[in-house]
Design a protein around this nucleic acid. Sequence first.
DNA 1: ATGGTGGTACCACCA
Length: 259
Amino acid sequence: MSNNISIASWNVNSLNVRLPHVLQWLETNPVDVLGLQETKMTDEKFPADAIRDAGYQVAFSGQPTYNGVALLSKAPAEDIITDPPNVTDEHRRIIAGTVNGIRVINLYVVNGKAVGDEKYDYKLDWLKRVNNWIEDETARHDKLVVMGDFNIAPADADIHDPDAWRDQILCSKPERAALQRLLDMGYVDTFRQFDQEAETYSWWDYRQAAFRRNMGLRIDLVLASTALAAQCSSSIVDKEPRRWERPSDHAPVVAEFAV
DNA sequence: ATGGTGGTACCACCA
């Protein structure tokens, strides 16, 4: 017997503004798991009731103004972690839980601002610590998803203008090396397991009419562990909500697994 | 060279 599990990630850039977008998207895309990033709200203000009314359980880790992550799921999420060992960070960037037997790690990776900036150093240190923790999680579980806003474009094919972005923030070699460490653990970028339309991205700056001109980057990823990647049946970027009124600058990404 | 948030009624910070 076989069961399809769909798992999605979406940087909403303020859940306060984007709650209607999330609820509307879930109506036509009733995924089993949805990880949100940049909720930008405290836990006290989190719209848990509205999300439960839509048929989802929800766990969240927020703070005022910045960052903030949430994990929505039809089935209950167990063993929730928001503060992994040795990842001491005031920023609310991590939420992990086990849903339908799959360990789901939802990340809002540090942006880093610019190569050489102190925030860039923080990004690389954060990635090192989080990778160490994911290595431990990977040893404990068989089926895992590591997803979220990685703020790293894996390859030139994920960048609208690779020459302009060469070695810049989101594209630099040390950032890609941190992502490569996950691939070396056996994780697979599910998007690249399938034929995709050329120049498919997941984030477009609000400025310069970047979306209309498709000046984007693919920085939102659903990685699956070796065992789970073998069961992945599709992986896509859903650009539709980026066309809606008052959109997030990111599109949701969705992977489906036959488990 | 836009958009979100939050402190103060325009400006700072972050992406």
